[in-house]
Design a protein around this nucleic acid. Structure first.
Lengths: 128, 128
DNA sequence: GTATCATATGAGCAGTTGCTCAGATGGAGG
DNA sequence: CCTCCATCTGAGCAACTGCTCATATGATAC
């Protein structure tokens, strides 16, 4: 057996094959950005609320349990990534979900959470 | 109109109603952790690869385009959160997806990416 | 016009994250 | 035994994130 064969003995085609099926850099960037938007407790609370109904900043701040300024910053983040949309209504600004896939993403993540909970007993990972 | 009514004129029930439907803190934590796991380019590349087939650390490092040490760190992260599972095979360690919901999450995120791309032209958000 | 309410924004800072580097661990083969 | 290969791990650090605080903007009511 040659040195080259020995060095990559286990899965010589794995890399090439998987590389071909990999998503484009552009798509990967967008996908990762979508997950980043959902990967924060405050933003998740905001989006969970907006899945139920459109709401103004004030109320979102109460629900998310942070200052109105903090919510406003996060809403800009979400707006820039097209997860929410804003609309003036007199003095207030009403925010709406701008993509129904958000609800689907939450559903899938909850399924994963169930998976984690069911298998938890023997697993080393504990709440930080 | 009283002061109290004026202060919460737009949606007095929004908070209470949405608060009742909100997910528990425990579930929210797990959901956010799941999204955090997917919210990094290296981890996303690793998981995209593992959706295709089980693979050893070496190959994942090549596919993710980072050092084997870096991949190992990220694999521990993913292992702790039950997204992947590891199995020794002689000298190497083979990693496998530990939850088929990962593929579904990627699919949904890709749908969102399409949504973003379709609506991109008039939108202020640009690649950082 | 001024005052007030609601939201937005920029600067600054503490906490977190993902990498590198050096060294440890563990199986296979001589 | 010793050596090589593959993987793991801890420390340290540069970059990023999410908040607060102060201030700006914008619409309504007077």
């Amino acid at each position: 057996m040659s040195v080259t064969e020995t060095l990559s003995a286990i899965d010589p085609e794995a890399v090439a094959e998987t590389q071909a099926a990999a998503p484009s850099e552009e798509l990967l960037r967008l996908v990762v950005e979508a997950f980043q938007a959902l990967a924060d407790p405050t933003r998740a609370r905001i989006l969970y609320a907006l899945v139920r109904r459109p709401m103004r900043v004030r109320d979102l701040a109460i629900l998310a349990g942070v200052s109105e300024s903090a919510v406003s910053h996060q809403l800009r983040f979400l707006r820039d990534r097209r997860l929410v949309r804003s609309e003036r209504q007199g003095n207030a600004v009403i925010y709406t979900l701008d993509d129904h896939h958000v609800a689907a993403l939450f559903r899938e993540a909850e399924h994963h959470a169930d998976h984690v909970r069911l298998g938890l007993p023997d697993h080393p990972y504990r709440i930080p």
